[in-house]
Computed example of a mutant assay.
Amino acid sequence: MPRNKTTFINLLVELPWWVSVLVSATAYVMMAYVLPSIQTDNQITDAVFQAFVIPAPYIAGLILLAAPFALLNTRRKAIQLDTQRNIQTVRDLHWRNFEELVAEAYRRQGYRVTEGGYGADGGIDLELRKDDLVTLVQCKQWKTQKVGVNVVREMFGVLTAHQANHFIIISSGTFTQQAIDFAAGKPIELIDGPKLLALVNDVQVSPQVTIEKPKVCPKCSGELVERTAKRGPNAGNTFYGCSNFPKCRYTE
């Protein structure tokens, strides 16, 4: 997904609260004590270093303001994960919240998670690190459309370019059989809606998720997915259609 440019304060808000405290303290010590104590042969440089004493408390205080917001942001992400109940609540999330949900789930599994900031096309949404292994994650919150093989091929190229150990593609929907076949035998893991729910359920403080068995098409044994009619007398109403459409046009 496209991302806006991240400011320094926004970055601090996304990080643990103690990072803001540490950066604030470091900035104050550097500006109020370290730089003014440096003596050079240039009087202008010395004057500039001495001048840092004046804005030091203000800049440190501004950085410190990010700490409570970071704490609230961390709490919000935790609540967001712990209140998920089924695949529909996951699909109702905004795409950015969907990425946060996935990030928080892996964070609770002991991964060091870096969110976003890898490019305007969103090729990499998360970076996971554990035991010196690097895993890249792409989040696809596709509700009615299957993730095709082209996406998996593209991410395999990204995996190779970044020399990572593993790549995970996560969707709240499903993957085409071609995508599944292409990923087989490669360091690529495909996590669909049911697997994502199982992941969320495993890390919730008090498991809330209801994992439902997917509806099966009686004609071709494909999965029935929920769709919304876009036109006709039933426009706006939801129905179940076969995921193998247009080869199979079964609905209910």
Rank of each mutant, 00 (worst) to 15 (best):
M1I: 10
K5I: 10
T6C: 06
F8P: 03
I9N: 11
N10A: 15
L11E: 15
L11D: 14
L12S: 14
E14H: 13
W17G: 09
W17P: 15
W18S: 08
W18M: 05
L22N: 10
L22A: 15
V23Y: 12
S24Q: 04
A25C: 13
T26D: 07
A27C: 12
Y28G: 09
V29H: 10
A32P: 04
L35A: 15
S37N: 05
I38L: 12
Q39P: 01
T40D: 13
N42S: 12
I44Y: 14
I44D: 11
V48I: 15
Q50P: 00
A51V: 01
V53R: 12
I54Q: 06
A56W: 02
P57A: 05
Y58L: 13
A60T: 04
G61I: 03
P68E: 00
P68N: 00
F69G: 00
L71T: 04
L72E: 08
R76W: 12
K77W: 11
A78L: 12
I79Y: 15
I79C: 02
Q80V: 01
T83A: 04
T89R: 06
T89F: 06
T89M: 08
V90I: 14
D92I: 04
L93Y: 07
E99R: 11
E99Y: 10
E99I: 15
L101R: 00
V102A: 07
Y106S: 04
Y106A: 07
G110C: 06
Y111G: 03
E115G: 01
Y118R: 07
D121C: 04
D125E: 03
L128K: 00
R129T: 10
D131T: 02
D132F: 03
L133D: 01
V134A: 02
C139Y: 02
Q141W: 03
Q141H: 08
W142M: 02
T144K: 08
K146G: 13
G148M: 03
G148A: 06
G148K: 10
V152F: 06
V152Q: 06
R153L: 09
F156C: 09
G157I: 07
T160G: 04
A161Y: 07
F167G: 06
F175N: 00
Q177W: 12
I180M: 15
D181V: 07
F182A: 06
F182K: 11
A183S: 02
A184I: 05
G185S: 07
G185M: 06
K186M: 06
I188D: 08
I188P: 03
I188L: 14
I188V: 09
E189M: 08
I191W: 07
G193L: 01
P194G: 01
K195S: 10
L197A: 02
L197M: 11
V200P: 04
N201V: 03
D202Y: 03
Q208P: 10
Q208N: 14
K213F: 04
P214Q: 02
C217D: 10
K219L: 09
K219C: 08
G222H: 12
E223R: 12
E226N: 13
R227G: 02
A229E: 11
R231E: 12
R231D: 10
G232M: 08
P233G: 03
N234C: 03
G236T: 05
N237W: 11
N237S: 14
T238F: 12
Y240R: 13
G241M: 11
S243Y: 10
S243H: 09
N244Q: 15
F245A: 13
C248A: 10
R249Q: 15
E252K: 14
